[in-house]
């Protein structure tokens, strides 16, 4: 007799193995399965994280898809559940269901230039795709990471950015809205970096992630620079409950963000981006 398939709705218990404070309100949890099994995911997918007794929230996976021994999540503490996640320490347990949702189409972009455009904590859901691109570097043309943060203190993954920048085969440009301290880098919005180019618009695929307003202007700048809407991808956030298309909580126009997204091709959602409060 076949063993029953594991129920995707039941949380698997994971134990916190590492906690990293990234920014004043943002932290990274590395968790390993208590049952010892591994965990596979595709860049762009998310999990529902359960803080027992508090609630569950969708959080993108920010680790390396090649490492199945652990799951990495980077979260900004904004409300009840994310703050409770922030309270977890090494050895604490949490529930995980997933991975859910669509992926950044990293393989479909083989042979093309890759442009990652990230704003604020939006760098976290892009990190698995950047790791994938680095691991398969010879399959792409130029690779650019364009990242905008509010101030130098708000720059996420500084070590990663420095490491990526140190490679000779990719360009990493970082800009801040407001220079503080002895910041000697670029000042201005991330769309300025997009407009500077450095990629072949006819041959480029762009992945954009950040707050919705940033994605809208980021995608517009990419279009202005000549990348067609079909080659621009964005990651959308909506409140969720089930994570797998059952409850309708995450409905966005004709889509359920949890199963049709969170990663959408821009031409399919561009019009909805401009509808307030949809």
């Amino acid at each position: 007799m076949n063993a029953p398939l594991p129920d995707p709705m039941l949380p698997r218990v994971f134990r916190v193995e590492k906690v990293r404070r990234e920014l004043s309100d943002t932290f990274t949890l590395e968790v390993v399965a208590v049952d010892g099994g591994d965990f596979a995911f595709l860049p762009g997918q998310f999990n529902l994280l359960y803080v027992f007794g508090v609630g569950a929230i969708p959080i993108s996976i920010s680790g390396d898809p090649a490492d199945r021994s652990r799951i990495v999540h980077t979260t900004r503490a904004v409300g009840a559940v994310s703050r409770a996640l922030n309270g977890l320490t090494v050895g604490d347990e949490l529930g995980v269901t997933g991975p859910f949702g669509s992926m950044w189409p990293v393989e479909a972009a083989y042979g093309r230039d890759l442009v990652f455009v990230a704003g604020g904590v939006g760098l976290a859901p892009l990190r698995p795709a950047i790791n994938f691109a680095m691991a398969n570097r010879d399959r792409y043309g130029r690779v650019l990471v364009l990242y905008g943060a509010r101030t130098p203190e708000d720059i996420l993954f500084k070590k990663d950015l420095a490491r990526w920048r140190g490679r000779f085969d990719m360009d990493v440009l970082v800009t801040v809205d407001r220079a503080t301290g002895n910041w000697s880098g670029s000042v201005g919005v991330v769309t300025n970096l997009v407009l500077k180019g450095g990629f072949d618009p006819q041959q480029a695929t762009a992945f954009v992630c950040g707050p919705e307003v940033m994605m809208r202007y980021g995608a517009q700048a990419l279009e202005k620079r000549g990348i067609g809407r079909k080659h621009i991808w964005v990651s959308v956030e909506r409140n969720m409950k089930c994570g797998c298309g059952l409850c309708g909580h995450c409905q966005w126009g004709p889509y359920f963000v949890c199963k049709d997204g969170p990663v959408f091709r821009y031409d399919r959602v561009a019009e909805m981006f401009s509808v307030a409060e949809l």
Binding site: V13, G53, D92, E93
Partner: peptide
């Protein structure tokens, strides 16, 4: 948020969840 659950009581809560 209530304080994060202590590791010990977590399994029972996991079962309830």
């Amino acid at each position: 948020p209530p304080p994060a659950p202590a590791a010990a009581g977590v399994r029972a809560e996991a079962e309830a969840a």
